[in-house]
Design a binder for these strands. Structure first.
Lengths: 113, 113
DNA sequence: AAAACACTTGGCTATTATGCCAAGTAACCA
DNA sequence: TGGTTACTTGGCATAATAGCCAAGTGTTTT
């Protein structure tokens, strides 16, 4: 493991970390459909406006979203649609985990039958 | 946004968060090739054995890896190969960010030329 | 049985993240 | 110009992470 390789893993981790929050995940999910202003996103997640703004700053800093000022509003949009791959994979992991848990339960019950 | 939907985003976030660390990312990357024991992974990341063990516990808890005891060793393996999608997407974001930064620099220089 | 090896867990401290309030900036309205 | 809307930033309290050491468990070797 060279220092250079480690730096690459750190860069990747920063991007992934920026998505590791339910509110940010929700916002990204909506932004995948269309650009939205901060007040729209605020209604969506239901937190304080400052909280939403900071979440968006995290995503912007990671390069996940871009911001564009239109009049008094700021619209955010998804820069890389591929982030939806995160969702599908997370979903896969969740499903597999539940599936395996069911399996082991079933196995317990069937044991001795 | 219903409570049920929010719970789903929390579940996804837990999975993504478990990957949001360079050491864990590195380990997952290696485990994508083959199952490895903790001591091998320790050599790889270079941290204390307890630190590596705790990182693996995080991944296991999220359902990313599975553990199997073989004699005195514990081998970890990747449960969902799709997590490699995280890497490729993170890579895409990184590249796009760098590309756009180059673009804007180029634009600055070309301005007035 | 004792020693060595491979882990895991508890405990601790340092760092980082989260989320609210309050204050500041910028655009728009009257 | 004064007020309102839309957002960002600073500050702060609380909570979660990270990583080391030390101690404990289970396995293999001698």
């Amino acid at each position: 493991m060279t220092a250079k390789q480690w730096t690459l893993y750190e860069a990747r981790a920063r991007i992934i970390k920026s998505l590791a929050h339910p509110a940010r995940l929700l916002m990204v999910d909506e932004l995948a459909k269309q650009p939205l202003c901060v007040c729209d996103l605020r209604k969506l997640v239901g937190s304080d406006l400052s909280t939403v703004s900071k979440h968006l700053a995290v995503l912007k800093n990671a390069g996940i979203v871009a911001d564009e000022k239109r009049g008094s509003q700021v619209f955010y949009s998804l820069r890389c649609p591929c982030v939806t791959a995160f969702f599908t994979c997370a979903e896969t992991v969740l499903k597999k985990t539940l599936h395996d848990q069911l399996q082991s339960l079933g196995g317990k019950n069937r044991r001795g039958a």
